[in-house]
Design a protein around this nucleic acid. Sequence first.
RNA 1: GGUCCCAUCGUCUAGCCCGGCCUAGGACACCAGGUUUUCAUCCUGGCGACAGGGGUUCAAAUCCCCUUGGGAUCACCA
Length: 492
Amino acid sequence: MSKQPRVRFAPSPTGKLHIGGARTALFNWAYARRHGGQFLLRIEDTDPERSTKEFERAILEGLHWLGIQWDEGPDLGGPCGPYRQSEKYPQYREVAKRLLASGHAYHCFCTTERLDKLRAEQEARKERQVYDRLCAKLDPTESARRVAAGEKAVIRFHVPPGETVCIDHIRGDVRFSHEEVDDWVMVRSDGSPTYNFCVVCDDVDMGITHVFRGEEHLVNTPKQVLLYQALGQPMPEFGHLPLMLGTDGKKLSKRTGDTALQDYRDKGFPREAVVNFLCLQGWALDGTSVLFSVDQLVQHFEIKDVQKAGAIFDPEKFRWMAGEYLRKEPLATLVAHCTPFVVEAGLATAEQLSARAKWFEEVVKTEQPRINIYSELPARIAYLFQPDDAVATNDAALAAVRKHANTAQTLRDYREWLAPKIATGVDAAALRDTSKAWAAEKGLKLPAFFQPVRFALSGEVHGADLFDVMVLLGSESVLRRLEAAASRLAAT
RNA sequence: GGUCCCAUCGUCUAGCCCGGCCUAGGACACCAGGUUUUCAUCCUGGCGACAGGGGUUCAAAUCCCCUUGGGAUCACCA
């Protein structure tokens, strides 16, 4: 690398940040950091119909959340601005004028109707559907006159004969014949520039040295490369990242699951897990490490190590990884991450939780091995917030408890035995042994003892350690719930 | 259909560029055990792939060709 690389991520604000885009951003950013270069953010909002400020903000937010910082961008500014394409129309017009003058581009007056008809005919003859260059044959001064007269026209790029090879660090060199490239539209009849045109202008303006983007752009590359040549600008090196695929093997879309980064954030996937997992779609730290940090990514990321084949996005593995990170979180951090979800679920207010901070911390600690994402917590701990005489239950749990005989009696007996022991507080460790001894003495099999008690306390037959649950509930609640369940089981 | 890209366990991948260390490694999932009052966590083991066919070579997952399969893209969208 002769000089510092400059790379960019250039989303168009026509939707929330796609996880594929997030990965593209991540790889670009990692590359810049790895090689001591700059990472820029550019907003490609040349489609006024679909672009919104709202989406732009959401995208920046998503990027921030991932922990990606850019060196130049629409919010930060920089020496190569503006970083929003909608603010650069005068510049594009200038370039188009130059290209027109140098004969690399021409005005095309063909109507949409003629173009449609042309395509239909080519289709019928099973030919390639390309523009027939009718207007390329027009005399430039004649064209200029018609344009001056107010006639609607687009500006097309005049593709010269020949062939070109472009450097792709992932795929190797990609060779293409100019024959295959259409005389594409650079400027629409309303004067607005098109994507392929803006991209090149901007990448030139911003001194971009490496273009890493999704594979769907591979077919655009020839058009863009030709433009670099026409402009007399050095070509950047490319890297077309493998597509992220849905379980159907096709490009990931809303059909096959959540595609927006925000969806995963909203569901409570730990940030580090998202970053880690996204990186694993097409890249690996080494053969064996699955879990790695952003620092490790930056330390080892090489674009040539990126996989060529598309990667099917596996939500299952993603959830597993989320759990791995969640389990490693320091308790205070996990509490902070979970709190909004508990509040959102209506279990308690943030104030109520902070008033019982120590207690809530224990609650979270108890569930930490049992949840994979933050949003799973509320449902699991809801029982702690319910009235002692109205603990929610489900049929399956009830049915399981009913399999045991004399459960009401068991609960009452246990309650009676337990009451004096927890009068001054619950000691989980002590109770664990003595309770089992008590059950044994009563001639109860362990499940016949534990299941009804658990059911009484939480309405479930599965869950955290029973005596930890008692600690969380407190003596009074425990005794009340034991009684309430006994009554209920006796009644039916 | 044209053009382009791709091809290792069901999935993510290591190995491929610079052939031998590959009787192909790791992870998810799955299955079977162990731990636990249950669930989860955790631990152990198992299952399971070089798409097919030709070359080249003493030797090919690795290089070449063909076939097959999959994908992307064919706009005055990005």
